[in-house]
Simulated scan of single mutants.
Amino acid sequence: MKKIIFVLAIGVAFVSCKNDKKTTEKEVDVTVEDTSKDMAYASFGMEINDADALSSDRMMELYKTMKPGDTLNSKMTAKIVEVCSKKGCWMTLDMDGENEVMVKFKDYGFFMPLNAEGDVVVNGKAYVSETSVDELRHYAEDAGKTKEEIEAITEPKRTYSFEADGVLLKQ
């Protein structure tokens, strides 16, 4: 009898520890210029094209209207800032000279060349996350920052991210 109760308690503990995050998807009606020309691209992931891709400036405007937890199916063009130097499993894109977007690839299904640079078209889901002041201060403390640097953190940090299912790298 004790074994059955123990097994049931373990089962209840596993089920109750589930951590679901709710997200909302937003549909936005956007008119886009078709700037596709006869350009050569290297394709990674799902097969996509460059038609109807938003400019990085226009996409940044949409990012700024999003709240943490929102997602937006989109396609955009931007310039590569950096690619993961170990496997090519992520990249950062310049959006407007001030903001960058961290791009990861859906289910680690594909990677970018380590030396990738230039313009890309990415297709997938854009989303925003926010790191609280307490968490940022904790990270700063762990990094060995001074008390003054830690106390200077007074605002949460918004992170713009993108999960790409397909990428075109301009050649």
Rank of each mutant, 00 (worst) to 15 (best):
A9H: 08
A126M: 09
K87C: 08
E155I: 07
V121A: 06
K147R: 10
C17I: 05
D52K: 15
P156V: 02
L136H: 06
E141W: 07
D107T: 05
F162T: 03
E98N: 11
M95V: 00
E151T: 09
A116R: 08
Y63Q: 03
I48L: 03
A152K: 07
D50I: 06
G144L: 08
F162A: 04
G88H: 04
V120I: 15
E155R: 14
Q171F: 03
N99V: 02
F105Q: 05
L93E: 00
G118M: 03
R158L: 11
E151G: 09
K104L: 05
D94C: 03
E148H: 15
L136D: 05
T65L: 10
I5A: 02
E47R: 03
G166E: 11
M66K: 08
K2D: 15
V81P: 00
K157A: 07
D107V: 11
D50E: 12
M76I: 00
M102D: 02
M76S: 05
D165Q: 00
K170N: 14
V32M: 06
S85P: 10
T154C: 11
S36D: 10
A13K: 01
A152H: 03
D142A: 13
A152D: 11
K26L: 13
T31G: 06
E25F: 07
P68D: 04
I10T: 10
T65E: 15
D70H: 09
L8A: 12
K21G: 06
E148L: 05
M46V: 13
R137Q: 14
K147T: 08
I150Q: 02
D165K: 00
V7L: 12
D107S: 13
D29H: 14
G118F: 01
K21A: 06
V133I: 12
M1I: 04
W90Q: 01
M112V: 00
T71F: 04
S43C: 06
